[in-house]
Simulated assay, not measured.
Amino acid sequence: MQSWIHYPKNIKVAKYISCYWLIEKTTLQDINNFPKLNPDPATHLIICPQKQGFHYDTAPQVSSGSGSHWLFPQQQTLQIDHSERFIYLGVKFHIGALYSLDIPDYNHPTLNQADTVDMDHLLSVTGFPAESLLQIGRTEPLECCDKLDELFLPLLTNAKEDQHSEITHKVLQLLDSTAVSELGGKLFCSQRTLERSFNRVTGLTMKQCQSMNKLEAMLEYLYQRDASDIDWVDVAFKFGFSDQPHLIRQLKKQIGLTPKHYVEERGLTIDIYGGVTARD
């Protein structure tokens, strides 16, 4: 399994796209055939060969198909079928970015599903070079990212901001460091107005998004440590849980594993899609 994550160089592109990533499975010997993706408030556009299948399972809901596709914000842990060889080139958009973009055939906001996408239609091009990009991504990641910047710039240049997207940008800048109940006072805006605009742009509540971001930060923290080095009481305090039982309940609710089981099975719960990657 090989993977990389890089960031847009173009400032206009970086306003809407968080990062580019690639993951490729080249051998059937990999034992991690059904990894899980953590809940994610961001949207990913995933470029892959036209005949390559995808399968995301949140039981009882399943999203499947073939070729390039959207993976919209997910409120639950997803199990992916990675049992066959595959290559994915991903474009991770900032939270709520799609609200400002003129995307053909897109129903906003969309959550908890994956949908196929016509890349020619999306980017107003003829003959989107998917295979060429994937080949460059295998060997020259930075060149691949430069080409993605070039391809996405026209779509992003035409983005339109309004009062709801502006409010949401301000909320996102404070969300990881401020209690939701304090945001109205800091932004000189009513809590109801903040919540309404944020939900309109992202499809999520501020609390839901904050919880997902906190989970991502905590799992990345755990990913970098051996089980013997983890003090669960300290982890609970560090990430804002009232006590260790509260941490256990939340982790069980969000990813279906207790903290102990997560550490034991960390190879099975990853967010390689522009987030946590495997340790060296």
Rank of each mutant, 00 (worst) to 15 (best):
V263R: 00
I270R: 08
D162I: 13
R266H: 07
L22C: 08
L257P: 01
D30I: 14
G65V: 12
E182F: 08
L215D: 02
R200L: 14
D176G: 13
V235K: 02
K160A: 13
L151G: 01
W4P: 10
T116S: 12
S165W: 10
G256N: 07
H55I: 07
Q52H: 06
I80T: 08
S68Q: 11
T157G: 00
K36L: 04
Q61Y: 09
D226W: 05
L122S: 10
I248C: 07
T58I: 12
M206F: 07
L134P: 09
P35D: 02
E161A: 12
Q79C: 09
K160H: 11
L151A: 13
P129F: 02
E220R: 11
D102I: 11
G53Y: 04
P49F: 01
L133V: 05
E264P: 00
L37E: 09
R225G: 01
P39R: 08
D162H: 05
D226L: 11
L133C: 03
T205W: 05
H44G: 07
P73F: 02
K15V: 04
A130M: 13
E84G: 08
G96D: 05
N32R: 14
C144P: 01
R138S: 12
Q29N: 15
L111G: 02
E24G: 06
D118I: 02
V235D: 04
N158A: 13
K207Q: 15
F198R: 00
I11K: 11
K260A: 12
L268R: 05
K147C: 07
L219S: 01
K36W: 05
D271F: 04
V235L: 06
K25M: 07
L148H: 08
A42Q: 10
S242C: 03
D149P: 05
T205C: 09
A278Y: 11
Q250D: 08
Q61L: 10
N32Q: 14
T58N: 03
G267V: 05
I31F: 10
C189P: 03
A159W: 01
P259H: 02
A179D: 14
S68G: 11
D243W: 00
T258W: 06
L175W: 02
Q75V: 11
V263Y: 00
N32Y: 14
D149W: 02
A278K: 10
G256T: 12
L183R: 01
H94Q: 13
V263T: 06
L37W: 03
L257A: 08
T168P: 09
M212P: 04
Q250L: 03
A236H: 00
N213I: 14
L122G: 10
S132V: 15
F198N: 04
L123G: 13
S190G: 09
G127S: 09
G185L: 13
I270C: 06
L151I: 11
V263D: 00
G185D: 15
V263M: 11
G267T: 12
K92S: 13
L194F: 01
I230Y: 01
R138P: 07
Y88D: 15
T116W: 00
L111R: 07
G203D: 03
V263C: 09
I103Y: 07
T178A: 07
Y262K: 00
Y99M: 08
S68V: 14
L142P: 00
H261E: 12
F241T: 07
P39G: 08
G267M: 08
L22N: 01
S68E: 11
E216D: 15
C19F: 00
G275T: 04
T126Q: 14
D102R: 12
Q210F: 04
V62S: 01
K186F: 12
F237M: 13
A278G: 13
L156I: 15
